[in-house]
Amino acid sequence: MKILVPVKRVIDYNVKARVKADKTGVDLANVKMSMNPFDEIAVEEAIRKKEAGQAEEIIAVSIGPAQAQETLRTALAMGADRAILIQTDDIVEPLAVAKLLKAVVDAEQPGLVILGKQAIDDDSNQTGQMLAALLGWPQGTFASIVKVVGDGIEVTREVDGGLETVALTLPAIVTTDLRLNEPRYASLPNIMKAKKKQLDVKTAADYGVDISPRLKTLKVEEPAKRAGGIKVKTIEELVDKLKNEAGVI
């Protein structure tokens, strides 16, 4: 079985995001960029499946600017076998990403696509679901356990208030939650070897997909600054404030 792992280059999770003065988006000039953390979990899960002998090949794919090659190299250093960059400097919305991924799936015929449940830049949480719909494949989203069982997989999902386990036939779509695994650090020798692994660069046109935006961003704003808290003296005072001032209980 082949596993396809889409990875997105996003603002590093340690960076404090700042909104551009004209409110059109987040300022990314000279900001450290890294692989979306949920995608790292996806890569790790794919590698574990391969190490367990349940997959033969891992293909990492990214849609983004030329620098997204670095993100793909990270996936290759962690253990992916080869990579595809669909290069574009445009903003690509989840639907366009899903259409491109569908085209890659048609070409590569993977048995499993493992995606992050969302990217930490736009927090859309849509791509995996859209891809499942476009392909007509079953999906196991927000996975905290992915087990290969017979010809299919069992996915334990983190749902509100508990866990749900679903059985899927393959091919299938999985999106990762935080607790699925703890991604490894790429070993230094593998980082050096990753440079020699195959990385194909394509364009959206190669796949015949129209990626023009369907959405319009009106404005982006920083969250309101939190006012300082207060200290209460007694439990009664706390309960009173929660009830009467905050109105939360």
Partner: peptide, 19 residues
């Protein structure tokens, strides 16, 4: 030897040190 690879080595070490 190769700036691109080296940046990745360094980033990995930095992250390991911090985390």
């Amino acid at each position: 030897r190769d700036q691109e690879i080296f940046n990745q080595l360094r980033d990995t070490i930095r992250r390991f040190v911090n985390e």
